Amino acid sequence: MKAVLISGSEAQLASLRVLVETEGHEVTNALQHHADTTLSTMIEPLDTDVLIVECTEAQQAQDIAAIDAFVATHTQVVVLLLSTQREAATLLAAMQAGVREVLSSPAIATELTAALRRVVLRKKLPPLKATRAKTISFLSCKGGSGATFLATNFADILAKDLGKKTAFLDLDLQCGDAAYYVSPGPNRSDITELARQIDRLDAKLLSASVLHIHNNFDMLSAPEDPESGYTMNATQLDRLLDVIEVNYDMVVLDLERLLGPVTIQALDRSDVVYLVMENLLPFVRSAKRLVTKLRSLGYDDSKIRVVVNRYEKNDTIDVAQIEKALGIKVTHTIRSSFQDVAQAINTGVSITAVNPHNSIVQVLRDMAHGYDTSHAPRTMSWINRFMGSNS
């Protein structure tokens, strides 16, 4: 791989060069970052596979902003950030900017070489066969897209039509209300309560905690109290999915739009991510930003499926324009069907119960039946990746 090194210290640049070249990579540039030079002007013209940047505490916010702008147009470049600040706020800011890992500064030889080897593996590792459940996420590009309605009814069809034992997790932890779409409402236990018992979680406790919608369809609902949503962390979700994926055939996740630690962990664990949007300009703008961010975080386009909900062919923005803006094919379009959808939501039942011949049902069935059996490679959990640890 080609690597570019940036640091304010000549000694650190020399040390980094030795470490990178010892791993068999080519250092094409080693640039000293002077106080009177902005990082953005240094990195914009670069052509490389890996960018290793050391930033000081004083420059950190400015450097992360520069990296954010850089990865938006250089999605194939892996960015490793060396920093003395590795608290949660820094990790989250770096992650949202598209940094792949945050490492110690000054560089620790074993830590940096391990990170470089993970980059190589990520670029070369073929998809793995797996026996775990297939995990599907729905992510709204903008509020009001109908993602929760599609996610709950998709899960219902997986369970009813395919006979798959399906678990649904409502991960919109502050505002989630997925339980009301297919049932009278959540049960007494929610996903955050189960997360607090993560150390004793097993199949028996899981079964006692889920909301049983019907045969083969179970749900872990979001908390009724939004404050409770802040108590759940990415590590708890990772452990929860470990247990769920060996007890179910399919897992469906309804994600919140904020790409925080829990959502990133869910994306890491997902085999497929459905981005739900409408063919309206605000949705297209939001979808474009979201796709760029997902690419910068290292997610391949093959993992992303674009669904245009409430699509009308005679609207100003058509499928071809959406595909051109996003750089990704639209996999499904769903026509508006207000009357049946409203009846299903207002009565807390699936749309198949209202009208099994509705066009929305047909598209969701195509989505459910169209899955291949291959699985995307499992990625390292976000917190371990950012802390540069092996797992």
Rank of each mutant, 00 (worst) to 15 (best):
T231S: 14
A11P: 02
S270V: 03
V273C: 11
Y299D: 04
S209R: 02
V246R: 12
L253V: 10
Q339V: 14
A69M: 08
S83N: 02
L281A: 09
P223M: 04
L194D: 04
V4N: 00
A147S: 12
G176T: 07
I136Y: 05
V77C: 06
F138P: 02
D366E: 14
V20Y: 01
L267N: 11
L121N: 11
A114N: 11
V4D: 00
A234L: 03
N187Y: 04
I64V: 12
A167E: 09
L171W: 08
G298H: 02
L237N: 08
P184V: 04
G298M: 02
V349N: 05
N216T: 05
V71M: 01
S391N: 12
Q339D: 15
C141W: 00
M1Y: 03
M42G: 00
V349T: 13
Q96R: 14
S9D: 06
T135A: 01
T316Y: 13
E21F: 02
I345S: 15
V276H: 07
A14D: 12
V341Y: 08
T373G: 03
A159S: 09
L158P: 00
R122G: 15
M387N: 13
A94G: 01
Q76R: 12
N216I: 05
D225R: 07
P186S: 00
D36A: 06
V361F: 10
E323G: 13
S270Y: 13
L201P: 00
C55W: 05
D268M: 12
L91G: 06
D202L: 01
Y181T: 04
M387R: 15
P186W: 02
A376L: 12
P261A: 15
N358R: 15
L364W: 08
S7H: 01
R385L: 09
M367F: 02
S15F: 05
P282M: 12
E111I: 04
L112Y: 04
R200V: 09
Q96I: 14
M380F: 09
M250Q: 04
E312F: 07
V78M: 01
L162H: 08
S391W: 11
T316I: 15
D63I: 03
L206Y: 03
L267G: 06
Q321E: 15
R285L: 09
A208M: 04
F168I: 09
T113M: 14
W382N: 06
L267Q: 10
E54Q: 05
E312Q: 12
L5F: 00
